[in-house]
């Protein structure tokens, strides 16, 4: 069996987030510009990590939809920083499962000549090891 507790623990550790501080107000999800792209929403990330239910998040495309815009961080009344959980879960997938979401071979098809370097490096940083 997949050791759920270890994953949760790792996610909490590398994110540095204290999910227990969450008071379930939903302001993160109310602020999230990618809300409608996501299957699991920021407040659910926090709740699911808090309750150790990380598995569905690891397998969800929601982790690639976060824009890392930090709106949830700035507006959270409890200082929970949900974006850090999303990031930690994505890293968990990329590092532990070696599941790169973006392969270099696929890139040329996705870009045009105006694409700034910044887009490529950011995307690789976010989606690949």
């Amino acid at each position: 069996m997949h050791n759920k507790d270890n994953v949760t623990e790792r996610v909490l550790r590398i994110s540095g987030v204290n999910a227990r501080r969450c008071m379930k107000c939903g302001k993160c999800s109310a602020s999230c510009p990618s809300y409608d792209e996501m299957e699991y929403h920021p407040h659910q990330f926090v709740y699911m990590v808090e309750s150790g239910d990380v598995e569905p998040l690891l397998n969800s495309r929601s982790i690639y939809k976060c824009l890392t815009c930090f709106a949830c961080v700035d507006r959270c009344p409890r200082g929970v920083e949900p974006v850090k959980l999303v990031e930690a879960i994505r890293l968990e997938v990329i590092r532990e499962q070696g599941a790169n979401h973006l392969r270099a071979d696929d890139v040329p098809a996705k870009i045009d000549e105006d694409v700034p370097q910044q887009l490529l490096v950011s995307a690789f940083r976010k989606y690949a090891k």
């Binding site: 379930k24 107000c25 929403h41």
Partner: peptide
């Protein structure tokens, strides 16, 4: 749920918020 942002646009206030029960 909480309101995330209120955006004044023209003469309306666009309210973006969470409905946690309806998700």
């Amino acid at each position: 749920g909480m309101v995330g942002k209120v955006s004044p646009e023209g003469d309306v206030l666009k309210v973006q918020a969470s409905d946690l029960i309806a998700n």
